[in-house]
Structure formats: structure tokens, C-alpha cells
């Protein structure tokens, strides 16, 4: 019973990593840019939801939806007004720019909302599902974990349907597979890329909003979670959407198992880095990641 509890917590944690990793991979696939501000965009989304729910007093679901929408528009504008200007510059410039933008977001959030941990109420906060009850105690599953897992399933399914069956979704795939040919088809590639940034930001925000009740409180540094999510994306092959989610799950489950079953002091020190240990192992054994799409680039 305890194992189930640990696994569910691990899967939930992994789903959060997986969703943030999805955000990385979406942008990378479309533009070959790595957005190191991904975690900070998630953080802004969480604070947007916090402002709407805890300060403005909107109901949770309305505040969450509005926060997701705001973050999506924010991601769209970030590409349309900032990133688009350095198209054609070396990769390096994009990396530095997104790191710098992340710093700006973090300190801006610190200025606006302060560095103290905050939280917002969720309708399911503190609820648990009891699996087993005996004289030594209860085995429970946190409702926050279940909503994360459920939310991830719904979101991944929706994204799959969007990319597979809608015209603009297929056009997004086309733009990321062969940008020049997409231009020749009359696909407005620049707009499509901004749209992908918007989707990526919205997905990060969803991850953050689902995560909020699980971690109880958060501050402007919550975005550093994305470093682990980045490892998840690399494990998955950094170009594969299913790979990103799978990578997240692997890391999340490993972290929770290490936390629960390693003896005493090791658990505290090793659990947070267990994801990176797996990352190293994957890079040694399968350098392209688990789900690498082998594609020869034409010059």
C-alpha cells in the first residue's frame, strides 16, 4: 500500500516535470530554440492565478482559466515582440536572451509579489483518498496528486488531437518539420511560431496551477523546477512530445522512490539529484535520448 502511495506521488510529480518539458520541446521542435525562461514563465502563470484567485477573489476555476489564457497571450507576445527580433542570430544569442529574460521575470515577480511564499485555495486542497486504514495509520493519496495526473491526461490528449486533427495544428507540425516548405505553402510561419510559444507558455501555466496545491506554497524561485524538467526533456530525446512526458515520469517516480526507500540521510541528499543521475545514464547509453527522431537535416 505504501508503494502505491509513493508511486502515485511520483507519477504526479513526473506529470508536472513532463508538462514543463513539453513546453521546452514544443518550442524546440518549432524553432530549434531552447527557452530557458520556461520555468519563469510557469512562475509568472502561477502568480497570475494567485493574483486572480487569492487577491481578486475569483473562483478557483475561473481564476485558473484566466491565468492560463493570460500566460498564453504573454508567451505569444514574448515571441512576437522579443524573440522574433533575433531570428537568424546564433543559437547562443537565443540561449543568453532567454536566460536573461528569465532573470528579469524573476526579479520583476519579486518586486511585484515579494519574495515570501504565497498560496491560493483550491476546491480540492487538503482532500485525500484513503486506501487503507489500520491501527498503525492510514495510507492516503493526496487529491492534488490525482488532479495533476488527471489534468495531464486530459491536456496531453487535447494536445494530441489538436496537432493531429486541426488544420492549424498540422500546419504547426509542418512548420517545424520543414520551415521553408511551410512558407511556400502560404502558412504564416512567424505567426504559427508565436502561437506555439503561446501554447507552450499556457501548458507551463497549467503545470504550475496543478502543482500549486501539491507544494502548498510557492515563491518567485519556483521556476527552478524547470531545470529538472529540462533533464526530463533531454531524457526523452528533446524533440519528442511523448518522450518529454515519459522523461518527466521517469524522473518523478525515481525521485519519490529514492525519497521513500533510501536510508535516512541519503534520501534527503540523493532524491533531488536522482533525475540528473538518470540523465547521465541515458546520455551515456543512448545519447540521442529515449525517443529521438532520427532526421538528417538538409544543408
Amino acid at each position: 500500500m505504501e508503494l502505491i502511495q509513493v508511486l502515485v506521488a511520483g507519477i504526479a510529480q513526473g506529470c508536472v516535470y513532463g508538462l514543463i518539458a513539453l513546453g521546452f520541446v514544443l518550442i524546440y521542435k518549432a524553432t530549434e530554440q531552447v527557452n530557458f525562461a520556461q520555468g519563469d514563465i510557469m512562475m509568472l502563470g502561477m502568480f497570475a492565478a494567485f493574483t486572480l484567485i487569492a487577491i481578486a477573489g475569483l473562483p478557483w476555476w475561473l481564476g485558473a482559466l484566466a491565468g492560463i489564457a493570460i500566460t498564453g497571450v504573454f508567451g505569444f507576445c514574448l515571441d512576437a515582440f522579443v524573440l522574433r527580433r533575433i531570428i537568424g542570430q546564433p543559437q547562443f544569442a537565443v540561449i543568453i536572451l532567454t536566460i536573461a529574460v528569465g532573470f528579469v521575470f524573476r526579479s520583476a515577480a519579486g518586486g511585484v509579489w515579494g519574495a515570501d511564499p504565497v498560496s491560493f485555495d483550491t476546491p480540492y486542497g487538503g482532500l485525500v483518498v484513503t486506501l487503507d486504514e489500520n491501527e498503525t495509520g492510514r495510507t492516503v493519496i493526496d487529491a492534488a496528486d490525482l488532479t495533476i495526473i488527471l489534468g495531464t491526461l486530459v491536456l496531453v490528449g487535447a494536445l494530441y488531437a489538436f496537432f493531429r486533427f486541426t488544420r492549424i495544428g498540422v500546419a504547426m507540425q509542418a512548420s517545424s518539420q520543414n520551415q521553408l516548405a511551410a512558407y511556400y505553402m502560404g502558412i504564416p510561419v512567424k505567426y504559427v511560431i508565436s502561437l506555439i510559444w503561446g501554447i507552450s507558455a499556457a501548458v507551463s501555466c497549467i503545470a504550475g496551477i496543478l502543482l500549486a496545491p501539491k507544494i502548498a506554497t510557492f515563491d518567485p524561485d519556483v521556476g527552478f523546477l524547470a531545470i529538472t524538467a529540462f533533464a526530463a526533456a533531454v531524457i526523452g530525446g528533446f524533440g519528442s512530445l511523448p518522450g518529454a512526458v515519459l522523461g518527466g515520469l521517469i524522473i518523478g517516480i525515481t525521485e519519490q522512490l529514492a525519497q521513500a526507500y533510501l536510508p535516512g540521510e541519503y534520501a534527503r541528499s540523493i532524491a533531488p539529484i536522482s533525475g540528473f543521475v538518470i540523465l547521465l545514464a541515458v546520455l551515456l547509453i543512448r545519447p540521442d535520448g529515449l525517443f529521438a527522431q532520427i532526421q538528417r537535416k538538409k544543408v
Binding site: 500546419a171 520543414n178 521553408l180 516548405a181 505553402m185 502558412i187
Partner: peptide, 21 residues
């Protein structure tokens, strides 16, 4: 364009429909 610039991971039908985007 020269060099057969298809969308490699889309199906043939999806490629054609993208032409009508």
C-alpha cells in the same frame, strides 16, 4: 523548391492538404 522538400513526418495526404492551407 529543388531537393523535394516534403514534410517528412506528415502523411502524404496531410502533405497535400497543407498545399491547400
Amino acid at each position: 523548391p529543388e531537393g523535394r522538400e516534403v514534410f517528412p513526418f506528415l502523411t502524404v495526404r496531410e502533405n497535400l492538404l497543407m498545399g491547400a492551407f
